[in-house]
């Protein structure tokens, strides 16, 4: 993202092609993960329309994987939905963080809300000014929605032809994408570093014990020193 800032600062204007280029790798990786989601769902015995419709109306990768996992394990619809909802509670916090990028119209706000995902929020917040944050949100959001759903549909139809996607190392690409996107904020604001480190440690410590979705929420407790440091100023 650093190079992106440099270029756009030099030209003085938002650069959509740069945003598209940087987004496209995330799209590509998400598309392949979508393929595997479609394939896994159908291989597990669900009809083709289930992963396809779920991806369109839920549109949250990790929650979809866990919900289908519980369904296939015979966990019942409410346990399955609860698992996914727990994972998605964080989107409420993310939607607050990007709320000013979704306007101004009512339709844009209702549409934009559906596009709030980890990657798109990270991509938008990594931009240096509101105009570019807005552009990044919509470019990343719409592209990701299209590619994710296309990937899921193809995966559901093609079944397990793709094989084990772990071979491609994509599971390492997603955390690395988030590293690249949060680094500029961490470089710019030293007061963020302690809450971020504390939050990550809390989440890691809770992961073996807490149900999926909870550890990441616990990380917000890391904000306590941030609030205090602010109040002391």
């Amino acid at each position: 993202m650093r190079s992106l800032q440099r270029t756009t600062q030099a030209s003085g204007a938002p650069s959509p092609s740069r945003l598209v280029r940087d987004s496209s790798l995330v799209w590509l990786a998400s598309g392949v993960v979508g393929l595997s989601f479609g394939a896994i769902s159908v291989a597990g015995g669900l009809p083709v329309w289930v992963p396809v419709v779920m991806s369109l109306v839920v549109y949250a990768g990790s929650a979809q994987f866990s919900t289908v996992g519980v369904l296939l394990a015979g966990g019942g619809p409410f346990a399955a939905a609860a698992t996914g909802l727990l994972l998605n509670t964080r989107t409420a916090a993310f939607s607050l963080a990007v709320a000013d990028l979704l306007g101004p119209g009512r339709t844009a706000r209702l549409l934009g809300a559906h596009l709030v995902t980890d990657e798109t929020v990270a991509f938008a917040l990594a931009q240096p000014d509101p105009a570019r944050r807005r552009a990044a949100f919509w470019i990343s959001g719409l592209g990701l929605f299209a590619v994710w759903n296309a990937g899921v549909a193809v995966g559901a139809l093609a079944g397990t032809a793709l094989g084990d996607t772990a071979v491609y190392g994509l599971d390492a690409a997603f955390p690395a994408v988030l590293v690249a996107l949060v680094l500029p904020s961490l470089r710019a604001d030293a007061r963020l570093r302690r809450p971020v480190a504390l939050g990550a440690l809390l989440a890691l410590a809770a992961t073996p014990f807490a149900p999926a979705g909870i550890p990441v929420l616990l990380a917000l407790a890391g904000l306590a020193p941030y609030g205090r440091a602010r109040a002391a100023r």
């Binding site: 964080r90 963080a97 963020l192 939050g199 989440a203 992961t207 990441v216």
Partner: peptide, 13 residues
């Protein structure tokens, strides 16, 4: 700040 904390917790886990 909360969004950054959540993103880093996500990437760490």
């Amino acid at each position: 700040a909360g969004a950054v904390v959540l993103l880093v917790a996500l990437l760490a886990t």
